[in-house]
Design a protein around this nucleic acid. Structure first.
Length: 162
DNA sequence: GCCAACGTTGGC
DNA sequence: GCCAACGTTGGC
């Protein structure tokens, strides 16, 4: 079981949107970056933990927890010419882009702001804090995951863990 | 709105 | 295969 941080603009798809999705489950689609694609396709598996991060907003922060419920599979939004994520180079036979499904798990009692992360010795090194860090899906270490939960005051045991 | 950082594209 | 130009991201 591994851990990830997923970035989203709340004006586009927020933690609320995930919670309100049917069964609290939504596909994580529309990622059009090769490095993130590789993670979605090859590394991210059902059961993995997700730190849900809001970016490009008044207070960028980790706001919740989610869990991967389906590992990488072809992103069919690339096949929709009307959609915002259409890519003519992708085809059902030879998909370029991949997505996963994630399920809402928890809202943090208090969002973990960038300042809060920076001020924590175990979290200050997180990729999301690094300058120019644009990867929308980022690996998180087990230590960072635990420290984030501790800092949030959350005791969450995900299915498949422990 | 600014601007640094990054990924992608395309000319050569 | 290099690299400049461009578009996008995202914190501030």
């Amino acid at each position: 079981m591994r851990y990830w941080l997923m970035k989203t603009e709340p004006g586009c798809f927020s933690l609320d949107d995930l919670e309100r999705s049917p069964g609290g489950i939504s596909s994580w689609d529309g990622v059009r970056n090769f490095q993130a694609r590789n993670l979605l396709r090859d590394e991210i598996k059902a059961g993995d933990g997700v730190l849900f991060y809001h970016s490009s907003c008044a207070e960028p922060a980790i706001v919740g927890l989610a869990q991967v419920v389906r590992g990488g599979y072809p992103d069919h939004t690339a096949q929709d010419p009307q959609g915002a994520h259409f890519d003519a180079k992708s085809s059902p036979d030879n998909p370029i882009w991949y997505m996963v499904d994630v399920k809402f798990r928890a809202r943090l009692p208090h969002p973990l702001t960038r300042d809060a992360l920076r001020n924590h010795p175990l979290l200050a090194g997180m990729m999301v804090l690094q300058r120019g860090s644009r990867l929308s899906v980022q690996p998180v270490t087990a230590e960072e995951w635990q420290a984030a939960l501790d800092l949030a005051g959350l005791d969450l045991r995900l299915q498949g863990e422990g």
